[in-house]
Design a protein around this nucleic acid. Structure first.
Lengths: 193, 193
DNA sequence: TCCATTTGACTGAAAATCCGGTCAGTGCCA
DNA sequence: TGGCACTGACCGGATTTTCAGTCAAATGGA
Protein backbone atom coordinates (compact mmCIF):
# COMPACT_ATOMS: atom_id res chain seq x y z
CA UNK A 1 0.00 0.00 0.00
CA UNK A 2 1.94 2.96 -1.27
CA UNK A 3 1.45 6.30 0.42
CA UNK A 4 0.22 9.15 -1.64
CA UNK A 5 3.59 10.80 -2.09
CA UNK A 6 5.21 7.49 -3.02
CA UNK A 7 2.46 7.06 -5.56
CA UNK A 8 3.36 10.46 -7.00
CA UNK A 9 7.04 9.60 -7.12
CA UNK A 10 6.35 6.31 -8.89
CA UNK A 11 4.30 8.23 -11.41
CA UNK A 12 7.08 10.80 -11.75
CA UNK A 13 9.58 8.05 -12.56
CA UNK A 14 7.23 6.76 -15.26
CA UNK A 15 6.60 10.21 -16.72
CA UNK A 16 10.29 11.09 -16.71
CA UNK A 17 11.13 7.78 -18.35
CA UNK A 18 8.50 8.48 -21.01
CA UNK A 19 8.94 12.23 -21.61
CA UNK A 20 12.20 13.19 -20.01
CA UNK A 21 12.86 15.60 -17.17
CA UNK A 22 12.23 18.62 -19.33
CA UNK A 23 9.14 17.06 -20.81
CA UNK A 24 7.59 16.51 -17.40
CA UNK A 25 4.39 18.56 -17.04
CA UNK A 26 3.02 18.88 -13.55
CA UNK A 27 -0.49 18.43 -14.87
CA UNK A 28 0.47 15.27 -16.71
CA UNK A 29 2.18 13.98 -13.61
CA UNK A 30 -0.97 14.67 -11.60
CA UNK A 31 -3.04 12.73 -14.12
CA UNK A 32 -0.55 9.84 -14.16
CA UNK A 33 -0.57 9.68 -10.37
CA UNK A 34 -4.33 10.09 -10.22
CA UNK A 35 -4.16 13.15 -7.96
CA UNK A 36 -4.70 16.87 -8.27
CA UNK A 37 -1.94 19.29 -9.21
CA UNK A 38 -2.39 20.96 -5.87
CA UNK A 39 -1.43 17.84 -3.96
CA UNK A 40 1.86 17.69 -5.77
CA UNK A 41 2.76 21.17 -4.56
CA UNK A 42 1.45 20.27 -1.12
CA UNK A 43 3.96 17.44 -0.89
CA UNK A 44 6.90 18.69 -2.92
CA UNK A 45 6.90 22.50 -2.79
CA UNK A 46 7.72 23.11 -6.43
CA UNK A 47 8.77 21.50 -9.69
CA UNK A 48 12.39 21.28 -8.61
CA UNK A 49 11.26 19.57 -5.42
CA UNK A 50 9.53 16.92 -7.51
CA UNK A 51 12.75 16.30 -9.42
CA UNK A 52 14.94 16.17 -6.32
CA UNK A 53 12.68 13.69 -4.56
CA UNK A 54 12.29 11.60 -7.68
CA UNK A 55 16.05 11.32 -8.02
CA UNK A 56 16.26 10.13 -4.44
CA UNK A 57 13.39 7.72 -4.99
CA UNK A 58 14.95 6.24 -8.10
CA UNK A 59 18.17 5.88 -6.23
CA UNK A 60 16.61 3.98 -3.37
CA UNK A 61 14.76 1.76 -5.76
CA UNK A 62 17.92 0.94 -7.69
CA UNK A 63 19.47 -0.40 -4.52
CA UNK A 64 16.61 -2.82 -4.18
CA UNK A 65 17.20 -4.65 -7.44
CA UNK A 66 20.94 -4.12 -7.34
CA UNK A 67 21.48 -5.78 -3.97
CA UNK A 68 21.11 -9.51 -3.58
CA UNK A 69 17.56 -9.89 -2.37
CA UNK A 70 16.96 -13.59 -1.72
CA UNK A 71 18.45 -14.59 1.68
CA UNK A 72 17.94 -18.31 0.99
CA UNK A 73 19.87 -18.25 -2.26
CA UNK A 74 23.40 -19.56 -2.52
CA UNK A 75 25.66 -16.72 -1.32
CA UNK A 76 27.44 -15.15 -4.27
CA UNK A 77 31.18 -14.99 -4.63
CA UNK A 78 32.50 -11.41 -4.72
CA UNK A 79 33.17 -11.84 -8.42
CA UNK A 80 29.60 -12.95 -9.07
CA UNK A 81 28.28 -10.12 -6.97
CA UNK A 82 30.37 -7.64 -8.95
CA UNK A 83 28.92 -8.88 -12.24
CA UNK A 84 25.49 -8.79 -10.66
CA UNK A 85 25.69 -5.20 -9.46
CA UNK A 86 26.82 -3.93 -12.83
CA UNK A 87 24.81 -6.12 -15.20
CA UNK A 88 21.54 -5.66 -13.37
CA UNK A 89 21.51 -2.11 -14.70
CA UNK A 90 21.41 -3.45 -18.23
CA UNK A 91 18.17 -5.38 -18.36
CA UNK A 92 15.25 -4.78 -20.62
CA UNK A 93 12.57 -4.83 -17.93
CA UNK A 94 10.16 -1.93 -17.38
CA UNK A 95 11.55 -1.14 -13.94
CA UNK A 96 15.20 -1.09 -14.95
CA UNK A 97 14.52 0.71 -18.19
CA UNK A 98 12.54 3.30 -16.28
CA UNK A 99 15.29 3.74 -13.73
CA UNK A 100 18.04 3.94 -16.31
CA UNK A 101 16.26 6.38 -18.50
CA UNK A 102 15.28 8.58 -15.59
CA UNK A 103 18.84 8.41 -14.28
CA UNK A 104 20.23 9.40 -17.67
CA UNK A 105 17.83 12.30 -17.87
CA UNK A 106 18.72 13.51 -14.43
CA UNK A 107 22.41 13.21 -15.25
CA UNK A 108 21.89 15.25 -18.41
CA UNK A 109 19.77 17.80 -16.59
CA UNK A 110 22.38 18.22 -13.89
CA UNK A 111 24.70 19.64 -16.52
CA UNK A 112 22.43 22.68 -16.59
CA UNK A 113 20.82 22.55 -13.19
CA UNK A 114 23.13 23.03 -10.21
CA UNK A 115 20.34 22.04 -7.82
CA UNK A 116 20.56 18.42 -8.94
CA UNK A 117 24.34 18.21 -8.90
CA UNK A 118 24.93 17.62 -5.24
CA UNK A 119 22.49 14.73 -4.93
CA UNK A 120 23.76 13.23 -8.14
CA UNK A 121 27.39 13.50 -7.09
CA UNK A 122 26.64 11.88 -3.76
CA UNK A 123 24.71 9.02 -5.32
CA UNK A 124 27.48 8.47 -7.85
CA UNK A 125 30.12 8.43 -5.14
CA UNK A 126 28.24 5.80 -3.14
CA UNK A 127 27.88 3.68 -6.23
CA UNK A 128 31.55 3.98 -7.19
CA UNK A 129 32.60 3.05 -3.67
CA UNK A 130 30.33 0.03 -3.69
CA UNK A 131 31.92 -1.20 -6.90
CA UNK A 132 35.41 -0.37 -5.63
CA UNK A 133 34.66 -2.42 -2.52
CA UNK A 134 33.63 -5.43 -4.57
CA UNK A 135 36.70 -5.09 -6.77
CA UNK A 136 38.74 -5.03 -3.58
CA UNK A 137 37.21 -8.31 -2.47
CA UNK A 138 38.07 -9.91 -5.80
CA UNK A 139 41.59 -8.49 -5.86
CA UNK A 140 42.57 -8.01 -2.21
CA UNK A 141 46.16 -7.00 -2.98
CA UNK A 142 45.29 -4.08 -5.25
CA UNK A 143 45.86 -0.57 -3.84
CA UNK A 144 42.80 1.48 -3.01
CA UNK A 145 43.47 4.25 -5.53
CA UNK A 146 43.74 1.74 -8.35
CA UNK A 147 40.52 0.06 -7.28
CA UNK A 148 38.78 3.42 -7.19
CA UNK A 149 39.97 4.26 -10.70
CA UNK A 150 38.70 0.94 -12.05
CA UNK A 151 35.36 1.45 -10.32
CA UNK A 152 35.04 4.93 -11.79
CA UNK A 153 35.73 3.61 -15.25
CA UNK A 154 33.31 0.71 -14.96
CA UNK A 155 30.47 2.85 -13.68
CA UNK A 156 31.09 5.62 -16.19
CA UNK A 157 31.23 3.02 -18.96
CA UNK A 158 27.97 1.57 -17.75
CA UNK A 159 26.35 4.99 -17.94
CA UNK A 160 27.67 5.48 -21.44
CA UNK A 161 26.51 2.06 -22.61
CA UNK A 162 23.16 2.60 -20.98
CA UNK A 163 22.60 5.84 -22.88
CA UNK A 164 23.48 4.17 -26.15
CA UNK A 165 21.14 1.33 -25.39
CA UNK A 166 18.26 3.66 -24.51
CA UNK A 167 18.86 5.90 -27.52
CA UNK A 168 18.60 2.86 -29.71
CA UNK A 169 22.14 2.58 -31.01
CA UNK A 170 23.21 -0.51 -29.12
CA UNK A 171 21.50 -3.85 -28.54
CA UNK A 172 21.15 -4.79 -24.89
CA UNK A 173 22.95 -8.12 -25.33
CA UNK A 174 25.90 -6.45 -26.94
CA UNK A 175 26.00 -3.83 -24.20
CA UNK A 176 26.09 -6.60 -21.61
CA UNK A 177 28.90 -8.38 -23.42
CA UNK A 178 30.94 -5.20 -23.65
CA UNK A 179 30.46 -4.54 -19.96
CA UNK A 180 31.37 -8.10 -18.96
CA UNK A 181 34.55 -7.86 -20.99
CA UNK A 182 35.32 -4.53 -19.39
CA UNK A 183 35.12 -6.13 -15.97
CA UNK A 184 37.56 -8.81 -17.10
CA UNK A 185 39.87 -6.24 -18.57
CA UNK A 186 39.89 -4.17 -15.40
CA UNK A 187 40.45 -7.25 -13.22
CA UNK A 188 43.36 -8.23 -15.44
CA UNK A 189 44.79 -4.79 -14.88
CA UNK A 190 44.45 -5.14 -11.13
CA UNK A 191 46.45 -8.39 -11.31
CA UNK A 192 49.64 -6.80 -12.56
CA UNK A 193 50.34 -3.32 -11.25
CA UNK B 1 33.98 40.57 -38.81
CA UNK B 2 31.21 38.13 -38.12
CA UNK B 3 27.93 38.72 -39.93
CA UNK B 4 24.88 39.28 -37.84
CA UNK B 5 23.57 35.75 -38.27
CA UNK B 6 26.96 34.22 -37.43
CA UNK B 7 27.00 36.39 -34.36
CA UNK B 8 23.62 34.93 -33.39
CA UNK B 9 24.83 31.36 -33.95
CA UNK B 10 27.92 31.91 -31.83
CA UNK B 11 25.70 33.26 -29.09
CA UNK B 12 23.37 30.29 -29.51
CA UNK B 13 26.26 27.88 -29.01
CA UNK B 14 27.16 29.68 -25.80
CA UNK B 15 23.60 29.71 -24.53
CA UNK B 16 23.10 26.02 -25.33
CA UNK B 17 26.29 25.18 -23.46
CA UNK B 18 24.99 27.16 -20.51
CA UNK B 19 21.31 26.19 -20.48
CA UNK B 20 20.92 23.20 -22.74
CA UNK B 21 18.94 22.85 -25.95
CA UNK B 22 15.64 22.77 -24.13
CA UNK B 23 16.71 25.57 -21.83
CA UNK B 24 17.42 27.94 -24.70
CA UNK B 25 15.14 30.98 -24.50
CA UNK B 26 14.85 33.09 -27.59
CA UNK B 27 14.85 36.25 -25.51
CA UNK B 28 17.99 35.20 -23.69
CA UNK B 29 19.63 34.34 -26.99
CA UNK B 30 18.75 37.80 -28.28
CA UNK B 31 20.35 39.42 -25.24
CA UNK B 32 23.45 37.22 -25.53
CA UNK B 33 23.83 38.09 -29.20
CA UNK B 34 23.07 41.75 -28.56
CA UNK B 35 20.18 41.84 -31.02
CA UNK B 36 16.40 42.00 -30.82
CA UNK B 37 14.20 38.91 -30.72
CA UNK B 38 12.60 39.97 -33.95
CA UNK B 39 15.90 39.76 -35.80
CA UNK B 40 16.32 36.15 -34.78
CA UNK B 41 13.01 35.24 -36.38
CA UNK B 42 13.92 37.39 -39.38
CA UNK B 43 17.03 35.25 -39.97
CA UNK B 44 15.96 31.81 -38.73
CA UNK B 45 12.20 31.55 -39.13
CA UNK B 46 11.48 29.84 -35.82
CA UNK B 47 13.03 28.18 -32.79
CA UNK B 48 13.59 24.92 -34.63
CA UNK B 49 15.40 26.84 -37.32
CA UNK B 50 17.71 28.30 -34.70
CA UNK B 51 18.45 24.82 -33.36
CA UNK B 52 19.03 23.28 -36.77
CA UNK B 53 21.44 25.99 -37.83
CA UNK B 54 23.22 25.98 -34.50
CA UNK B 55 23.75 22.22 -34.58
CA UNK B 56 25.20 22.56 -38.07
CA UNK B 57 27.39 25.41 -36.90
CA UNK B 58 28.66 23.43 -33.92
CA UNK B 59 29.30 20.46 -36.14
CA UNK B 60 31.41 22.43 -38.57
CA UNK B 61 33.35 23.85 -35.70
CA UNK B 62 34.02 20.43 -34.17
CA UNK B 63 35.90 19.32 -37.25
CA UNK B 64 38.37 22.09 -36.60
CA UNK B 65 39.67 20.71 -33.30
CA UNK B 66 39.05 17.03 -34.00
CA UNK B 67 41.26 16.81 -37.06
CA UNK B 68 44.96 17.39 -36.79
CA UNK B 69 45.15 20.99 -37.85
CA UNK B 70 48.80 21.95 -38.14
CA UNK B 71 50.31 20.54 -41.35
CA UNK B 72 53.85 21.59 -40.34
CA UNK B 73 53.76 19.69 -37.06
CA UNK B 74 55.61 16.41 -36.57
CA UNK B 75 53.34 13.63 -37.89
CA UNK B 76 51.85 11.69 -34.99
CA UNK B 77 52.35 8.01 -34.35
CA UNK B 78 49.11 5.97 -34.44
CA UNK B 79 49.29 5.68 -30.66
CA UNK B 80 49.62 9.44 -30.25
CA UNK B 81 46.85 10.02 -32.69
CA UNK B 82 44.62 7.64 -30.74
CA UNK B 83 45.22 9.53 -27.50
CA UNK B 84 44.68 12.76 -29.39
CA UNK B 85 41.33 11.83 -30.88
CA UNK B 86 39.96 10.72 -27.54
CA UNK B 87 41.50 13.27 -25.21
CA UNK B 88 40.65 16.26 -27.37
CA UNK B 89 37.05 15.78 -26.30
CA UNK B 90 38.05 16.32 -22.69
CA UNK B 91 39.36 19.87 -22.65
CA UNK B 92 38.05 22.72 -20.61
CA UNK B 93 37.89 25.27 -23.40
CA UNK B 94 34.67 27.08 -24.26
CA UNK B 95 34.59 25.54 -27.72
CA UNK B 96 34.99 21.91 -26.59
CA UNK B 97 32.71 22.38 -23.62
CA UNK B 98 30.05 23.80 -25.89
CA UNK B 99 30.37 20.92 -28.30
CA UNK B 100 30.38 18.27 -25.59
CA UNK B 101 27.33 19.78 -23.95
CA UNK B 102 25.49 19.87 -27.21
CA UNK B 103 26.46 16.26 -27.96
CA UNK B 104 25.31 15.16 -24.52
CA UNK B 105 22.05 17.03 -24.98
CA UNK B 106 21.56 15.42 -28.33
CA UNK B 107 22.26 11.95 -26.93
CA UNK B 108 19.83 12.53 -24.07
CA UNK B 109 17.16 13.98 -26.34
CA UNK B 110 17.39 11.01 -28.67
CA UNK B 111 16.10 8.75 -25.91
CA UNK B 112 12.77 10.52 -26.23
CA UNK B 113 12.92 11.69 -29.82
CA UNK B 114 13.17 8.93 -32.45
CA UNK B 115 13.79 11.55 -35.14
CA UNK B 116 17.27 12.21 -33.78
CA UNK B 117 18.25 8.58 -33.41
CA UNK B 118 19.31 7.84 -36.94
CA UNK B 119 21.72 10.78 -37.23
CA UNK B 120 23.12 10.05 -33.83
CA UNK B 121 23.61 6.35 -34.54
CA UNK B 122 25.39 7.17 -37.80
CA UNK B 123 27.70 9.72 -36.20
CA UNK B 124 28.49 7.29 -33.39
CA UNK B 125 29.28 4.51 -35.85
CA UNK B 126 31.69 6.70 -37.79
CA UNK B 127 33.41 7.67 -34.58
CA UNK B 128 33.67 4.08 -33.32
CA UNK B 129 35.13 2.98 -36.64
CA UNK B 130 37.67 5.78 -36.59
CA UNK B 131 38.84 4.70 -33.14
CA UNK B 132 38.80 1.01 -34.14
CA UNK B 133 40.95 1.92 -37.13
CA UNK B 134 43.51 3.66 -34.96
CA UNK B 135 43.54 0.75 -32.51
CA UNK B 136 44.18 -1.52 -35.50
CA UNK B 137 47.20 0.54 -36.47
CA UNK B 138 48.60 0.26 -32.96
CA UNK B 139 47.85 -3.48 -32.68
CA UNK B 140 47.92 -4.80 -36.26
CA UNK B 141 47.51 -8.44 -35.23
CA UNK B 142 44.25 -7.99 -33.30
CA UNK B 143 41.07 -9.33 -34.91
CA UNK B 144 38.58 -6.79 -36.20
CA UNK B 145 35.77 -7.78 -33.85
CA UNK B 146 37.99 -7.34 -30.82
CA UNK B 147 39.15 -3.96 -32.07
CA UNK B 148 35.55 -2.91 -32.58
CA UNK B 149 34.60 -3.95 -29.05
CA UNK B 150 37.50 -1.98 -27.58
CA UNK B 151 36.56 1.04 -29.64
CA UNK B 152 32.96 0.82 -28.50
CA UNK B 153 34.05 0.66 -24.89
CA UNK B 154 36.45 3.56 -25.19
CA UNK B 155 33.98 5.84 -26.90
CA UNK B 156 31.13 4.91 -24.56
CA UNK B 157 33.44 5.47 -21.62
CA UNK B 158 34.38 8.85 -22.99
CA UNK B 159 30.74 9.80 -23.23
CA UNK B 160 30.17 8.69 -19.66
CA UNK B 161 33.19 10.56 -18.36
CA UNK B 162 32.22 13.62 -20.33
CA UNK B 163 28.78 13.70 -18.75
CA UNK B 164 30.27 13.39 -15.29
CA UNK B 165 32.70 16.15 -16.02
CA UNK B 166 30.00 18.46 -17.35
CA UNK B 167 27.65 17.70 -14.49
CA UNK B 168 30.36 18.69 -12.07
CA UNK B 169 31.12 15.36 -10.44
CA UNK B 170 34.49 14.75 -11.99
CA UNK B 171 37.51 17.01 -12.42
CA UNK B 172 38.70 17.26 -15.99
CA UNK B 173 42.25 16.16 -15.14
CA UNK B 174 41.01 13.07 -13.41
CA UNK B 175 38.71 12.29 -16.32
CA UNK B 176 41.68 12.54 -18.67
CA UNK B 177 43.76 10.24 -16.48
CA UNK B 178 40.99 7.67 -16.32
CA UNK B 179 40.61 7.74 -20.08
CA UNK B 180 44.34 7.45 -20.71
CA UNK B 181 44.51 4.45 -18.42
CA UNK B 182 41.53 2.92 -20.19
CA UNK B 183 43.40 3.17 -23.49
CA UNK B 184 46.35 1.37 -21.93
CA UNK B 185 44.12 -1.28 -20.42
CA UNK B 186 42.42 -1.93 -23.74
CA UNK B 187 45.73 -2.06 -25.60
CA UNK B 188 47.01 -4.57 -23.04
CA UNK B 189 43.95 -6.67 -23.73
CA UNK B 190 44.59 -6.53 -27.48
CA UNK B 191 48.11 -7.87 -26.85
CA UNK B 192 47.00 -11.23 -25.48
CA UNK B 193 43.91 -12.69 -27.07
C1' DT C 1 -20.89 6.88 23.74
C1' DC C 2 -21.76 11.05 21.34
C1' DC C 3 -20.72 15.21 19.35
C1' DA C 4 -17.73 19.41 18.99
C1' DT C 5 -13.23 20.68 17.52
C1' DT C 6 -9.01 20.22 15.21
C1' DT C 7 -5.86 18.52 11.89
C1' DG C 8 -4.00 17.83 7.60
C1' DA C 9 -4.49 15.55 3.10
C1' DC C 10 -6.61 16.88 -0.84
C1' DT C 11 -9.12 19.54 -4.69
C1' DG C 12 -9.94 22.61 -8.58
C1' DA C 13 -9.99 26.80 -10.42
C1' DA C 14 -7.96 31.29 -10.54
C1' DA C 15 -3.73 33.95 -10.81
C1' DA C 16 0.80 34.59 -12.10
C1' DT C 17 4.37 33.64 -15.06
C1' DC C 18 6.74 32.20 -18.94
C1' DC C 19 7.81 32.15 -23.75
C1' DG C 20 7.54 31.52 -28.77
C1' DG C 21 6.08 34.13 -32.26
C1' DT C 22 4.08 38.58 -34.61
C1' DC C 23 3.88 43.12 -36.33
C1' DA C 24 3.86 48.02 -36.98
C1' DG C 25 7.25 51.00 -37.38
C1' DT C 26 12.28 53.12 -37.64
C1' DG C 27 16.54 54.13 -39.77
C1' DC C 28 19.58 53.68 -43.40
C1' DC C 29 21.64 52.99 -47.82
C1' DA C 30 21.61 52.58 -52.84
C1' DT D 1 11.99 56.23 -52.49
C1' DG D 2 12.03 51.49 -52.25
C1' DG D 3 13.52 47.85 -49.73
C1' DC D 4 16.41 45.59 -46.37
C1' DA D 5 18.06 44.96 -41.63
C1' DC D 6 16.46 45.71 -37.54
C1' DT D 7 13.69 46.98 -33.08
C1' DG D 8 10.84 46.11 -29.10
C1' DA D 9 6.23 46.26 -27.51
C1' DC D 10 2.80 43.13 -27.58
C1' DC D 11 -0.17 38.77 -27.98
C1' DG D 12 -2.04 34.51 -26.50
C1' DG D 13 -1.45 29.77 -25.40
C1' DA D 14 0.89 26.78 -22.32
C1' DT D 15 2.61 25.84 -17.57
C1' DT D 16 3.56 26.65 -13.06
C1' DT D 17 2.08 28.14 -8.64
C1' DT D 18 -1.15 29.69 -5.22
C1' DC D 19 -5.10 29.50 -2.37
C1' DA D 20 -9.71 29.28 -0.40
C1' DG D 21 -12.22 25.78 0.82
C1' DT D 22 -13.89 20.53 1.39
C1' DC D 23 -13.82 16.33 3.71
C1' DA D 24 -12.61 12.42 6.47
C1' DA D 25 -10.27 10.91 10.27
C1' DA D 26 -8.32 11.80 14.83
C1' DT D 27 -8.88 13.94 19.39
C1' DG D 28 -10.94 14.73 23.49
C1' DG D 29 -14.35 16.43 26.81
C1' DA D 30 -18.77 15.45 29.13
Amino acid sequence: MASRSTQILEAAARVIARRGVRGLRVEELAAEAGVSTGLIYYHFKDRTGILRHTLEFINDRAERYTSTQDPDAEPLTPREELDQVLLLELQDTPEVRENSSAWGELRASAVFDPVLREDLARATLVWVQEVAGLLGQVRPMAPAATLAASAERLTALLEGLSMRWLSGGLAIDHARTLLREAVEVELARLDRP
